[in-house]
Design a protein around this nucleic acid. Structure first.
Lengths: 348, 348
DNA sequence: TTGAAAGCGCTAACAG
DNA sequence: CTGTTAGCGCTTTCAA
């Protein structure tokens, strides 16, 4: 026997009004905190509402109020634990502020743009882009649609877009100094996706530190912020004649891949034969099996900044774009050779 | 100088109509594939729409059409990579079918219920629950609201709810047989969250295999499907006088924690001194550092089944609840001692 | 305090 | 083929 799951329309404010013997506007008022309505009337309405399991239709409300309490979030790749964690925190934070998340992952094409069109039609009040892929059209569309856009963990030349990022350049530089102090011979960089600001800024900082010490990068491969690609890149790297003994990876996810490649495929002892450093300080980095030295991003703080700035953008019409940089710091574990005792990273 | 980001209302079909010198309904028709409208009129409308960057308001459309093309997904914990991966696939699949995801993570309380109320107000056409926490109220609310509910990777006694799960009992049994064939001495189970069907069914299968062989479980701890908790549980486990040499963990995430605890805190060689097996076959399980033997869940297939059954529930009013079981299989790696050559798991 | 009525942006039924 | 009109379910004037 088929069990009835749907069927019958959901009750409306009119149904409640009829049952309670009041006007429909009374129903609306009864459910609006602070509206002027007598306790008796409210009581009657509430009872009827309860009985019908009435739930106000937020879509109808949005139409009138001119705001949907919906926020679009474009996020990828979920393979990197950084993003799911970010999503979880954003979801809770926005929920606390009365907003809900319209989630969209860029499809197989990797391009979030087509989905954006549809998300904008849902009248999202803001869009948060936390995806390694970023097309300039994305920004333009949001601007044209007059929907505030917040870039999370990435930047763009487009100065008018609000961004929340980590200390990418400083992080790269700090790691460079750290590895230099550890007396390494040959330095390598494993880039993320080339077009991303994160990968570029981290690389620039790293190169700057090397340059200041009169050294330079001897190896450079591309790992696309992806485990499999980083694994492949590492095989190239460690097969080189002048095998590097200090490898900085643009994020932890790739660093973990490189680390395991060094160990399992080349029998290199990580932290002794080769030093490997990452960026992000995801939960995995602290696992006993890895003990990855990395530059941390304060994810909860970063998420909170995203939430704060997004709400501010929604509430005010014209706002100076913000470029928020969330501080991080070097987290020293055992995946890289240690500098002499007493060493500390230079400031700024 | 403040850059104008918002301000000015978004253009409506009326604005487009005025600019194109046509009626508002002509605008609607021009944008509706298959509507009867002349090419010239459509052309005029399209041009005006383009010029104003017009985007139809889907909220208004939903109000009329009586469906929102919105699907609510409750998911947690994102710490376990199983879920983000699932989310990504679901998002793409539903997008292809013209639906969008309203995402909600249960708040700090761990209880998805309060959020559900709000999500239902957004007129989601279905709700997918993929969260380890599950209260019976959740099911009841969806039923009362006449919104189809699909449980993903969990079940309930409530027979009227559609579920998509893996072969939990078979998986547990297979792993039991596998460990028995590996001639182990003492068997342990690391449970997930006690109330979950997944943890219970996997345990039952495991115990059944042991019982059939005239053996029994000698240790049982609870890891709450959580890395930290599993780590703590493992410390208890390996500190026992009669230390187990075969440990089945209710999921991979916990198995990885237990594995590392064995290695790093007790110096036990995994796969020799102690065998550890998980469940799910998440990407991490195949990493060189782990090589975890586990029972796979076919995540993409599982996601597709969830999508299919959800769409079916949305489209038809009354539907027999489905209990879909997606097949998985034992994936043998090196974290557990191997049975004698030629061993295969029993069928069914 | 209450109800009647207008209208948010759109689709669809109805005339023309 | 096209425009006019009536709502979708709600909030918010406006009178009473």
């Amino acid at each position: 026997m088929p069990v009835k799951i749907k069927g019958g329309k959901r009750p409306t404010a009119y149904d409640v009004a009829r049952l309670a013997g009041v006007s429909q506007s009374a129903v609306s008022r009864a459910l609006t905190p602070g509206a002027s309505i007598s306790p008796e009337l409210r009581e009657k309405v509430m009872e009827a509402a309860q009985q019908l399991a009435y739930r106000p239709n937020l879509l109808a409300r949005s139409l009138i109020k001119q705001h949907s309490r919906l926020i679009g979030i474009a996020m990828a790749p979920m393979e990197n634990p950084f993003y799911p964690t970010m999503l979880e925190i954003l979801s809770e934070g926005f929920a606390a502020a009365g907003y809900r998340i319209l989630f969209f992952a860029p499809g197989p094409s990797g391009d979030p743009d087509p989905a954006l069109d549809e998300v904008l039609r849902f009248q999202v009040e803001a869009v948060i882009l936390a995806s390694t892929r970023l097309t300039s059209q994305f920004i333009e569309k949001c601007t044209r649609a007059r929907v505030p856009l917040v870039l999370c963990n990435r930047r763009t030349d487009h100065k008018a877009v609000t961004t929340v990022t980590g200390q990418n350049a400083l992080g790269g530089r700090t790691i460079g100094e750290f590895l230099l102090a550890g007396s390494h011979r040959s330095f390598a960089y494993v880039a993320g996706i080339e077009e991303t600001s994160t990968s570029r800024e981290r690389e620039q900082g790293f190169r700057q530190a090397l340059r200041r010490a009169g050294r330079k990068l001897s190896h450079r491969v591309v790992g696309h912020y992806d485990f499999a690609a980083a694994h492949a890149a590492a095989r190239t790297l460690f097969s080189a004649r002048d095998r590097p003994d200090a490898v900085f990876c643009a994020n932890d996810q790739m660093a973990l891949a490189v680390m395991q490649t060094a160990q399992s495929y080349f029998g290199l002892e990580v932290g002794r034969a080769v030093s490997i450093v990452g960026f992000d300080n995801i939960a995995l980095a602290s696992w006993p099996a890895f003990q990855l030295t990395t530059f941390s991003q304060q994810l909860p703080l970063m998420a909170q900044r995203v939430i704060d700035v997004t709400l501010k953008l929604i509430e005010s019409d014209a706002v100076e774009p913000v470029h928020d940089i969330v501080p991080g710091k070097l987290v020293v574990r055992t995946s890289a050779r240690l500098p002499p005792e007493g060493w500390t990273p230079s400031k700024a």
